[in-house]
Amino acid sequence: MVLELKNIEKSFGEKQVLKGVSLCAQGGQAFGLLGRNGAGKTTSIRILMNVFPANGGEVLLDGKPIDYKKVKFGYLPEERGLYPKKKIIDQLVYFAELNGVKRSDAVKSVDRWLARLGMTEYRNKRLDTLSKGNQQKIQLITALAHDPQIVILDEPFSGLDPVNAMLLKDVVKEEIEKGKIVLFSSHQMNYIEEFCDSIAILNGGEVVLSGDLYEIKRNYPRDRLVIRSEQTAEIAESFGENCAVTENGELIVTLDSPDDKQTVMKGLVESYDIDEVKVFEPSLNDIFVEYAGHQE
């Protein structure tokens, strides 16, 4: 299963929000959609889910225009909210039914998910009696109970304690293993880095960077070394201006050319007491700041 957005354009009044957004997500993989606030993530998601039409471009599934009658979406919106005064089971079943599940199946599925997330005891409670984290878990069920092929999770980890975050990670991994397309949108880069194989960074309604995360990192010039050693001062002295000390005491040495790295590493290990030396790879956070740091 391959989901593609091709050249999606969208304007609201005079304001062009999306300027030809293209991205491609594979089944059985997680895809990270990144961007600062107002970059066009939510608009892209809404067009993908057919909440409103795009002004241009197309949404394809396996190369063909997507048939919204056949494809089910699961959505965890960034702005959380359900019916605060209603019984949890009632609203969960309602949402599953709206997504095309028969009532009896909906009840079974919802009960299974409540059990999976340890929420069975709240089945007949009103939503507003639950803590924020538990409400979040209920909201997650609305995204998954109807067994969608495409799951879109907008900031899924916000407001969860570490134990619940762990539980959510497991659930997301299971969904990915089932071959579903999982689309993540988040500002918590560590989670994206942990889950997503591919990413797209949106800035000012355009995709400024997209592709396989590993490849993106590999494609950065490999001309910097990270060194951890007891003899930082001596090493720093020997490299002079080409060397910087990071906050956690590591040294980053910039080489004249990536080709020198083998020689320099060898020399370091022979001359000093080195704990670790490796080629510097930027974190997703670094990449994000580089590409989305300036608002277009």
Partner: peptide, 15 residues
């Protein structure tokens, strides 16, 4: 109410 409780976010994508 559906809008202010943001249940609408989910409703518009489901129905």
């Amino acid at each position: 109410t559906e809008k202010s409780s943001r249940a609408m976010e989910l409703l518009i994508t489901s129905a």
